[in-house]
C-alpha cells in the first residue's frame, strides 16, 4: 500500500480515465441484478398454483347482446396473491441491497426501484379491481360460455418489467435493459400453446412459465456474471 500510488500523473486524460474506472468499479460493487430477477422468477412461478388452485367466484356481470352476458371470474387467493407477493418481494429486495451495501461499504440505489415497484403493484391491483366491476371493458378478451377469465398475471408481469427498467436506470445497467426488452416482448405477446384454446382454469399457466423462465435464466446469467461470492475489487 502506497500513499498515492493509484493515481500518479497530472495528465487530464489520465485523471478522467481514472475517474471513469472508479465509476465502473463502484457500479460493479453496487449491482446485485440477479437477486430481484430470481425473486420475481419465484413470485411468477408461485402465481401458477395460487391463481389456478383457488376456487373461482363469479363477479360482476353485464349484458352482452349476442353472447348473452359477460361476467368476471376470480379467486380470492389468485386476487390477493400478486399484491402481497409484490410487497414482500420489494421489501426482501430492499433489505438485501441495504445489507449488501453495508457489507461492501458503498451506498445502494435500490430505493427508486423499490418505490416504483410498489407504486406499480398498487396501480395494477387497482386496474384488476376496476376490471372486476367493469367486465364489459375487457370484451376484447376471448370468451367461453359468456365468462371472461381475469388475467392479472399478464398485468403483474408487465409491472415487474416496468419496475426493472427503473432498476436498469438506477444501476446504469445496459445488459439488464436488453433483458427487459426481451422480457416485455414475451409478456406483451401472450402464448398459450393452444391450451384449451386459451381458456380454462390453467390457460394462463404457460405464459407465466415463460415469463418466469425468462426472469430465472436472466437471474442465473447475472449471478454468473456478477459472481457475488467474490468480493468486488
Amino acid at each position: 500500500m502506497t500513499t498515492e500510488s493509484a493515481y500518479s500523473g497530472d495528465d487530464p486524460r489520465r485523471l478522467l480515465s481514472g475517474s471513469r474506472d472508479l465509476i465502473r468499479r463502484v457500479r460493479m460493487a453496487q449491482r446485485a441484478t440477479w437477486f430481484p430477477l430470481l425473486v420475481f422468477a419465484t413470485v411468477t412461478f408461485g402465481a401458477i398454483p395460487a391463481s389456478g388452485i383457488g376456487r373461482g367466484h363469479l363477479g360482476t356481470c353485464m349484458p352482452n347482446p349476442p353472447a348473452g352476458r359477460v361476467c368476471t371470474v376470480y379467486s380470492y387467493l389468485g386476487f390477493s396473491y400478486w399484491p402481497v407477493a409484490f410487497v414482500l418481494a420489494y421489501v426482501a429486495i430492499a433489505v438485501f441491497y441495504i445489507r449488501r451495501s453495508r457489507a461492501r461499504g458503498v451506498g445502494t440505489r435500490v430505493r427508486p426501484y423499490a418505490i416504483a415497484g410498489i407504486i406499480l403493484a398498487l396501480a395494477m391491483t387497482g386496474a384488476v379491481l376496476w376490471s372486476l366491476y367493469h367486465p364489459g371493458a375487457a370484451q376484447a378478451l376471448p370468451m367461453v360460455s359468456g365468462l371472461l377469465p381475469l388475467t392479472p398475471g399478464v398485468r403483474y408481469s408487465f409491472a415487474i418489467g416496468l419496475a426493472l427498467i427503473v432498476l436498469a436506470w438506477a444501476e446504469r445497467n445496459r445488459a439488464l435493459l436488453l433483458l427487459i426488452a426481451g422480457y416485455l416482448a414475451v409478456v406483451l405477446q401472450p402464448i398459450s400453446f393452444g391450451a384449451a384454446n386459451g381458456h380454462g382454469r390453467w390457460a394462463f399457466a404457460p405464459q407465466l412459465v415463460i415469463d418466469g423462465s425468462v426472469l430465472l435464466l436472466g437471474g442465473i446469467g447475472f449471478l454468473l456474471a456478477q459472481r457475488p461470492w467474490r468480493r468486488a475489487a
Partner: peptide
Amino acid sequence: TIAHEARQVE
C-alpha cells in the same frame, strides 16, 4: 468521484 457514484461510501 466515488462518493458521487456511491451516494455514500465507507
